[in-house]
Simulated scan of single mutants.
Amino acid sequence: MSGAPADLLPWCLAQLPDPAGAALAPLAGDASFRRYFRLRWTGGTAVACVAPPATEKNAEFLAVREQFAAAGVRVPGLFGVDRERGYLLLEDLGDALLLPALTPATVDACYAQAMDLLVALATAPCGELPPYDDAALQAELELFPVWFCDQLLGVPFDAVARERFQALSARLLASAGAQPRVPVHRDFHSRNLLITPEGLATIDFQDALCGPVTYDLVSLLRDCYCRWPDDAVYRWARTFHGELAARGLPGLPDVEGFLVTFDLMGLQRHLKVLGIFARLSLRDGKDGYLGDLPRVYGYVRDVLAAHPGEPALAAFAAWLDAGIAPRLPAQPWWSAP
């Protein structure tokens, strides 16, 4: 069973009515401590997940799965769960991730489907989802100075860097706080979307919160694993804004204001991701994410440059160019974005 707990297969068999010939085979993991196995039996398949309760948000996964399904978002079905052991038996949605299917010829249609899911979420109630508030957003931003600057690049924040980062953070949090609050997946991108016969489905949603309406949109359109031209990105964002406006989403700004909040929300996310990808390498030994750092850094630098009239962004950009940019070419993972 290639590393599966000895009691996992018997537990899986007990969840199914007639699992003749069942066997487990390992599946690729993700950035978490979860492990996945495909269960095959005569006439069917499922996915067994080993999610240690000490480290994984299993209760949240189950609650959000129900909430998203009720909103009309395709998520894996549930065959069984053992909360004490952290075992889940889920519907097998296949291996067809959206990322490799994205090409210049397919991306418009694929993103239209993905944005349909986001419209469904944005027009659904937050329910019991915790708030994606200033404290949560700031905690994420702090990953950038700690893990990317200090631990990965060896550039600790001095007083100037801290002052400029605090001013930038205040601007980003103010923008996020002014947006309509909707259910937010928080990792809505091409590696967490699966192509199924019924359309796109999403996974890895256990960290969902009630937060800014542009967050998932910028996660999708400025994906950390692929990049598209800015004119296409803004065209898709305008389309999404139009869908929300047609549905009367309360508090929605005009389209130009929406695009500014979209940019600033992406800046918050991508600063966080720089810290997360550095931490995944340094703390967790997952070096595969380092190759995506240049793309994510490129998003940060380009958004800063696109808003020269924003004093906090301009001051932080100047510090970034002086203190961080000269260190990048020497990094083994660096390539110019």
Rank of each mutant, 00 (worst) to 15 (best):
A4P: 00
P5I: 08
A14L: 08
A14N: 05
P17G: 09
L24S: 08
A25S: 15
P26Q: 11
D30E: 13
R34G: 04
R35E: 14
R38G: 08
R40K: 15
R40H: 14
V47L: 14
A48L: 10
A54K: 15
T55E: 15
N58C: 00
A59D: 13
V64R: 02
V64K: 01
V64T: 04
Q67S: 14
G72V: 08
V73R: 01
V75T: 13
F79T: 00
F79Q: 11
G80K: 03
V81G: 06
D82V: 09
R83C: 05
E84Y: 08
E84D: 15
L89S: 04
G94V: 11
L102G: 11
T103H: 12
A109D: 14
L121E: 01
T123V: 11
A124G: 10
P125N: 13
G127L: 10
P130E: 08
P130K: 08
Y132A: 05
D134N: 08
A135M: 01
L137R: 03
F144A: 02
P145W: 03
V146Y: 04
V146H: 10
F148L: 06
L152T: 04
L153V: 08
F157C: 13
F157I: 02
A161W: 06
E163L: 14
L168E: 07
S169F: 03
S175Q: 10
A176F: 03
A176M: 11
G177V: 08
A178W: 09
P183C: 12
H185T: 06
R186W: 11
F188G: 01
L194T: 12
I203H: 01
I203F: 02
F205H: 03
Y215C: 04
V218S: 03
S219W: 01
Y225E: 11
C226H: 08
R227W: 12
P229A: 12
R238A: 15
E243T: 10
L244K: 07
R247I: 03
G257M: 00
V260Q: 00
G266W: 02
Q268Y: 05
Q268A: 06
Q268V: 06
R269Y: 05
L274T: 01
I276Q: 03
G291H: 10
D292I: 04
Y297P: 01
Y299H: 14
V300Y: 04
R301T: 03
G309F: 05
G309S: 02
A312M: 09
L313A: 06
A314V: 11
W319F: 11
L320N: 10
D321C: 03
A325M: 03
P326E: 05
R327C: 07
Q331V: 04
W333F: 15
W333V: 06
